[in-house]
Design a protein around this nucleic acid. Sequence first.
RNA 1: GCCGGAAUGGCGGAACCGGUAGACGCAGCGGACUCAAAAUCCGCCGCCCGCGAGGGCAUGAGAGUUCGAGUCUCUCUUCCGGCACCA
Length: 851
Amino acid sequence: MQETYDPAAVEKDAQAFWASRDSFRCVEAPGKRKFYCLSMFPYPSGKLHMGHVRNYTIGDVLTRYYRMRGYNVLQPMGWDAFGLPAENAAMANKVPPAKWTYDNIAYMKRQLQSLGFALDWSRELATCRPEYYRWNQWLFTRLFKKGLAYKKTGVVNWDPVDQTVLANEQVIEGRGWRTGALVEKREIPMYFLRITAYAEELLAALDKLPGWPEQVKLMQKNWIGRSEGVRIGFPYRLQNEDRVLWVFTTRADTLMGATFMAVAAEHPIAVFASQKNSQLKAFVDECKQGAVMEADLAQIEKKGMPTGMFVTHPITGDKLPVWVGNYVLMGYGEGAVMGVPAHDERDFAFALKYKLPIKPVIRHPLGDTVPAPWKPEYAEYGVCINSGKYDGLAFQQAVDAIAADLQKKSLGEKQVQWRLRDWGISRQRYWGTPIPIVHCATCGDVPVPDEQLPVVLPEDVVPDGTGNPLNKRASYVDTKCPSCGKPAKRETDTMDTFVDSSWYFARFACPGQDKKMVDERANYWMPVDQYIGGIEHAILHLLYSRFFQRVMQDETGLMKGVDEPFTNLLTQGMVLAESYYTDASGRREWINPAQVVVERDAKGKIVSGKTRDGRPVVYDGIGTMSKSKNNGVDPQALIDKYGADTARFYVIFTSPPTNTLEWSDESVDGSFRFLKRVWTFALRYLRATKSADADAKARFRIHSELRQANYDIQKHQFNTVASACMKILNALEELAEWNATTTEGLSILLRLLSPIAPHIAHDLWRALGFGEDIMTAPWPQPDPAALEQDEIELVVQVNGKLRGSIVVPKQADKSAIEKLAMSNPNVQRFVAGQNVKKVVVVPGRLVNLVV
RNA sequence: GCCGGAAUGGCGGAACCGGUAGACGCAGCGGACUCAAAAUCCGCCGCCCGCGAGGGCAUGAGAGUUCGAGUCUCUCUUCCGGCACCA
């Protein structure tokens, strides 16, 4: 053993040992309990960031823990390799996205290996490889033939200068990020996956996921958004033709209070009416300005304009004006809503603004009228008033009666509505899975047949930011119709990268399989027993994966009964960092926090800061690490300075996994110091003369800590497991002599530490002669005998306030405890001369005297 | 705006079912070792009153339930994540 802890040497040796034994490779072992531990695979952005280190350390702690508990553990790794950043990098550096991506993968793989993660690299995959994405294409053609994939128009952000579609991320305050041009909405044909066909099931199955955090299930439930209501038709005449304007409402009981209708700017009524009304045309065009993000739309000022057209109320026969409203979304429901100002806050504001009638039809807690300003009570359920034959009916009765009457007129029916929309997967971008469709003038959209898959994406393309470069490649676009053989055009849109990440977990089970999407090995490994990833994926990625798992079952005939891909889910908190900028000449220059020296007030709030070369900086708050704010912390510096074990220990110790982790590099020293202390203690132990004695007090401490740590690791509270390692070392260092308890405690400590800091644990385990390979050692369990105690300390309270403590025999009964508590001098000071009304004894905890 | 979450010393955090608030660590302060520094080791460390014993206050703010609330309920504030083309 070396005199001082040298992490570089220790880590090199341990990694060489694991490599020589192929320690991380795993194979199916029927009959052995399997544990599939998966961390969300990274986007190969260049180098690992702190979020990756945190995510993969958590996964590795669980992997190594379950291995030592005797499970057959699979922990694979791959690359979510398609996506927008590669195209941006390509434009900036004039390098094809493929090359940039593969270089990043090579670099990041070395980083992951240097961190000592127990990953089975023989299963590595990258979604940008044809052998992977061909199965995206295969599955898409299957769904297309079934009607589960289909074409319709969708709305996108359009940059009129670059003539290109922009991602939401590329729209900054309503303008294109490169051109600064005002972004417009544009409708284009796209392919959609019919996830709504699975809405009911995706919702219901949430109840069968006890291993998921409640908050994630709740978010998914609200996202899917089941609501029961009535679809109502409002008849009108257009160009001598009878038509019906349909709306959906959850408040059909308020139908008698409808005083206007509002439709989206893209709605056929709005389009027609604006043809001969230039003012309306201008308003409709204005509504089409701006980006498509819902967060923005929800906050814009609610505006409207009458179309001059009217529809007929299906019950009263009244004429209701039709307005165009900028808050009505075409892609959601029918693209039209009925306006009931008296009982809907948004309609109320709209009616006040445009002087539309407000007709109360529900008795609410404040009465029968709805004077301004708006009160939340106006929207509450109540009996109908001013509603003719429906007067006096309560909510459900009114809905039933109105729905029945509408049904007789074929102007309404009860309907279940979902907030969830079908999944638009078309992207007008180069670096993604080609959508395997050929457009033929005679045959229409023809899916590419299996034997012609994959449709291979050329890898030598450098995009220039003006549309999809595939369109400019005749050799790619021009093809023959697979159906009739005539010349035809290939679809140039690629798939949303969420498609790639919606099934990779199943593919990891089947390395080398080139005939099928997945094979029988998926039956062994699936479902994933523990999935770990950022909370930011709580809805989309996880919902799409749940959808794909079901579709995959249907199309492959495998994984029967495994409806849910992830049995247990750990949502890791985000790693946040402070961001700073200098504001010289009005241009913000973002300064990396590593380059900033800050001054804080007594409360720790940042009051001022400057760069290392003395320029003042502005503090911009704390947030996710991003390139745009230059506040990323490079973990490589940490690894280089302290080693992988310290980096791992630090991210585990500093915060529980589900919390956000506000980065500060000040306390890393503490983790390094601890590992050094472990090393030094082991060295002294090795050289010491040991007695055969045991120390009951120290054993009690050590085994109590172990019991707690085993409980905490089950709860995934790894930070306190790291604390337990420290506490055990403290207990060992306080021992008066080297004896059998030292040996036992060290053996427990190293095993408890090994999932977190595997290299040093591996090295010391061998050096101290505990065994050849700590990975194959059994997980430590507390000894019940060590936890036995004859006497226990009880806290004594008077009126709930702590006044002293007493030591009682383990078996003491309530009256003995009470007597002892009363005899405590400090307790007597507070009880003297007063009546004890009640005595609460909590066994093993406390006594509370109520006077 | 809507949906979800969080808030405890100077800092990260601990406190299992409602039962000793602040474990463990960082920073800081004092000391030992050293010519000195680093490293290491020992001690102190929520705020206020008190020489001390001890007492009072305290878990974002305000109310409530309870013998007892960081933990449960209600209202509010601030911050973080998501909002369908970032991944």
